[in-house]
């Protein structure tokens, strides 16, 4: 019963050979069917994960850069818009000023012309009045002559008339 406990008891070299060959054969087919593909897959996975981490980092940086660019562009367009508005305001101010000054000049010219015209009118009126007075005096003279007035009286009368008419302020 205890022969099995003695190592030399069942020393079957055939078994040893059989197990050695069996084990090597098993190792070989495991290598072909499972070990090679699965270690390759694990290797692929680790490289893929490493690549993914790298590319994620890269795209994160790209996104940050892009966002910064956008913000800068927005800031620039703000500045530009402000500049355009202020330019337009300035141009409008200038245009208003020129319009006003033109209008003032025009108004001044018109006023001067009106003054001149009035003066002319007045002078014309005065001249015609003088003529009228002359006619009238001649008429008066002829009437007085008809009434036999002496020459001195007549002259004095005419002079007083002319004097009165010659002062326009008084006549008004």
């Amino acid at each position: 019963m205890y022969t099995h406990l003695v190592i030399a008891a069942g020393f079957n070299v055939g078994d040893m050979l059989f197990y050695a060959i069996l084990f090597l054969l098993l190792m070989w087919i495991v290598k072909i069917f499972a070990w090679k593909p699965i270690t390759k897959m694990m290797q692929d996975r680790s490289t893929k994960i490493a690549n993914d981490i790298d590319s994620a980092e890269k795209s994160r940086n790209d996104a940050a850069k892009l966002a910064k660019e956008r913000a800068d562009a927005l800031q620039n367009s703000h500045d530009e818009a402000t500049k355009i508005v202020s330019d337009a305001e300035q141009a409008g101010q200038k245009r208003r000023d020129t319009i006003i000054s033109d209008a003032q000049n025009d108004a001044k010219g018109l006023k001067d012309k009106a003054h001149k015209d009035i003066e002319q009118e007045r002078e014309d009126a005065l001249a015609s009045t003088k003529d009228d007075v002359a006619d009238l005096s001649i008429e008066i003279a002829s009437k007085i002559i008809k009434k036999n007035l002496n020459a001195d009286d007549q002259k004095a009368l005419i002079d007083s008339y002319i004097e009165g008419l010659g002062n326009p302020n008084e006549s008004r």
């Binding site: 079957n12 055939g14 078994d15 069996l22 054969l25 098993l26 499972a34």
Partner: peptide, 27 residues
């Protein structure tokens, strides 16, 4: 000229077949 034990051979083959079948299915 070598002695082979049938029991050991059968058991060994069974072990190898179980192991390989399992690995084969899983892979």
């Amino acid at each position: 000229g070598l002695t082979f034990n049938v029991s050991n051979m059968i058991s060994g083959v069974i072990v190898a077949v179980i192991l390989f079948a399992f690995i084969f299915v899983c892979s």
